[in-house]
Design a protein around this nucleic acid. Structure first.
Length: 272
DNA sequence: CCCTGAACCTGACCGC
DNA sequence: TGCGGTCAGGTTCAGG
């Protein structure tokens, strides 16, 4: 489900409520997500939550003795609820705080992950090889050009590759390429400096706009209060196959690229 | 190192 | 109403 803006939205919603809070109990109702769930009760009971942070689409929740690494996968959500909220079918994990508030993790498809580390989470196997944050100063045209040099892979899967740059999934990849006027099939190594500059700008613009709007809700994304995101209304291409391009009015086209549906404008995004 | 395709799992939706 | 097929926002891994 969530791409970077959705994880950021979730984290910002949780921060004021759980940072500093005392964990009173942990309930795990599911043995395994993407991988087995560690004995969280053992690690977290009676611990105070530290400062939440995000790396790529991972939400990191430190306590005194280590850090919980959370990934929402395709269908995961974290919501703050109280104990009267009835359990739904896919509510897999509850973190119960001493004020009786509950942070509840729900994930129908179970592609998400909850991991525990006692070391610097950024050195964890899943995080250590990640590319730069797209909204950081490390994400530059020079960096992209160097990584793309000689690569024949299409630009769309290239910018969705977390070893190149993190946080860009299928929705925002399509949006950014449209805004930059780049055809999704353009070989990464053939993208010009000017196009990369437009791409860096469009990626940062689309991500910051989405964060401001509270994320994008395509199917079922909800924030920590259970509310949807509002960036959906501003999507230019994603989910608009066959509808008129907002620039040229011609119908948007769609095809599969690396198992992902890819919507683009055949007139505004030309393959050279 | 590069690239492609399959895999993990459930639910919603569409057409018959 | 039921059934089969298709699609879905992510990531890892195997194999060529």
């Amino acid at each position: 489900m969530p791409e970077l803006p959705e994880v950021e939205t979730t984290m910002n919603g949780l921060k004021p409520h759980i940072e500093g809070a005392l964990i009173q109990n942990v309930v795990v109702r599911c043995a395994q997500l993407r991988s087995p769930i560690p004995p969280l009760q053992h690690y977290l009971n009676q611990q105070h939550v530290g400062t939440l942070f995000r790396r790529a689409k991972y939400l990191l929740m430190p306590v005194n003795t280590g850090t919980v690494i959370i990934h929402l996968g395709m269908s995961g959500s974290l919501r703050l609820v109280n104990k009267t909220m009835p359990l739904q079918r896919h509510d897999h994990i509850d973190i119960v705080f001493s004020d009786e508030k509950i942070m509840r993790y729900s994930d129908a498809r179970r592609f998400g992950a909850w991991l525990w580390t006692e070391h610097d989470p950024l050195t964890h196997a899943l995080l250590k090889s990640l590319g730069p944050e797209p909204l950081s100063a490390d994400f530059t045209v020079d960096f992209l050009m160097q990584r793309a040099k000689g690569r024949r892979v299409a630009i769309k899967p290239f910018i969705m590759d977390s070893k190149v740059v993190v946080g860009i999934g299928n929705i925002y990849a399509a949006e950014a390429l449209f805004l930059a006027g780049i055809h999704p099939l353009t070989p990464a190594g053939k993208v010009t400096r000017g196009q990369f500059q437009a791409l860096v700008d469009s990626i940062q613009h689309v991500l910051t706009s989405a964060i401001k709007q509270g994320g994008t809700t395509v199917k079922d994304f909800v924030n920590s209060e259970g509310k949807p995101g509002y960036f959906t209304q501003q999507l230019a291409v994603y989910g608009r196959k066959g509808l008129p391009c907002i620039n040229c009015q011609l119908p948007l086209q769609s095809f599969k690229l690396g198992q992902r549906s890819t919507v683009y404008c055949g007139h505004c995004q030309v393959l050279f």
